[in-house]
Amino acid sequence: MSSPEAVPDGEDARPIRVLIVDDQGLVRGGLHSILQSQPDIAVVGEAADGDQAIEQVRAHDPDVVLMDLRMPVLDGIEATRRIVASSHAQVVALTTFETDEYVYGALRAGAAGFLLKDSPAESLADAVRTVHRGQALLSPAITRRLMDAYAAAPSPALVSELDVLTPREREVLIAIAQGKSNAETARALFVGEATVKSHVTGILAKLGLRDRVQAVVFAYEAGLVRPGG
């Protein structure tokens, strides 16, 4: 993980607002203590289930939600889906196993990535900063294992949606699904990085996707990239 970035001066110095969601009080307390010690992060609320999480998002308008996936009343997958649909918050799924089916469900629901509950303290803070910057929190290797395990056969409806993309946009979408950065994609396609960024923006807009994580899931479920391929 990269080292924490310096907090800028002025209005942009507002702390990153975080909501912690977990049905275990000890877990919530531990996460709260770690994050509250960071000068650029403020914990604005806690919740013990999905319903409470949705209420807390409405009340506190967090930038990032740390979301446990297995909870009573309303699980983290459905809570993620509702929060993503109704707010600007980025959701990070908290899990014990990196290839859990629940993780795949959370990514499909709109989570910006996931984090293992036993990750080091510095990784937790860095994860919050990463998703707040609009970046995905998902390694290519783990993405491939998740898709190999859980991606279903290509959906005809999604396959037909690919028709809105230009051939170049398809190439860029494949690169995203393979875990390539914009710079790596630019080198592979012999174009400028700014051009790749423009294509990524166009792909997300045309397909109605929130971010690169959803683009990865879409690429696999539309059959553009095959599990195990």
Rank of each mutant, 00 (worst) to 15 (best):
E184T: 10
G192C: 07
D148N: 07
P140C: 06
P167F: 04
L146M: 01
V191C: 07
A121L: 06
V172F: 05
M147L: 06
A125F: 04
L189K: 07
S155H: 08
A152L: 14
Q135V: 05
M147S: 02
A125G: 13
L146T: 00
A121D: 10
E161C: 08
S123R: 14
V191N: 12
A153K: 12
P156N: 10
R187T: 13
A175H: 15
Q135P: 15
P167G: 05
L189N: 05
N182W: 11
R144M: 14
S160Y: 10
E169D: 09
A175P: 05
A151R: 00
L173V: 05
D163H: 08
A149N: 13
L124Q: 03
P156W: 06
M147D: 02
A186L: 09
K180M: 11
E122D: 12
S139V: 10
V191K: 12
D126W: 10
S155G: 14
E193P: 08
L165R: 00
S139A: 12
L138T: 00
S139C: 08
L137R: 01
A186W: 08
L162Y: 01
L146D: 00
R129S: 04
I142A: 04
V164F: 04
V196F: 03
A149R: 09
Y150F: 09
R145D: 10
E171W: 15
L162W: 01
A175M: 09
A152I: 06
L165G: 00
L138I: 00
A136L: 09
I176E: 02
V172M: 12
P140H: 04
I142R: 11
K197C: 12
S160P: 05
S198Y: 11
D163Y: 14
R168P: 05
N182R: 14
E122I: 06
T195R: 07
A152Q: 15
E122R: 15
E193A: 11
S198C: 10
E184R: 08
L138R: 01
E184Q: 07
A121R: 06
S139M: 09
L137N: 00
V191Y: 09
E169A: 04
L158C: 08
R187V: 08
T195I: 10
V196L: 03
V191T: 11
A183S: 15
P120K: 03
D148V: 03
R170C: 00
L165M: 02
L189M: 08
L189I: 11
A153W: 03
A127K: 04
K180L: 15
P167D: 06
A152W: 05
L173Q: 02
A186N: 07
H132M: 13
L173A: 04
A194T: 12
I142W: 01
A177D: 01
R168D: 10
E161V: 15
A127F: 01
G192M: 09
R145M: 13
D163G: 06
D126R: 11
Q178P: 07
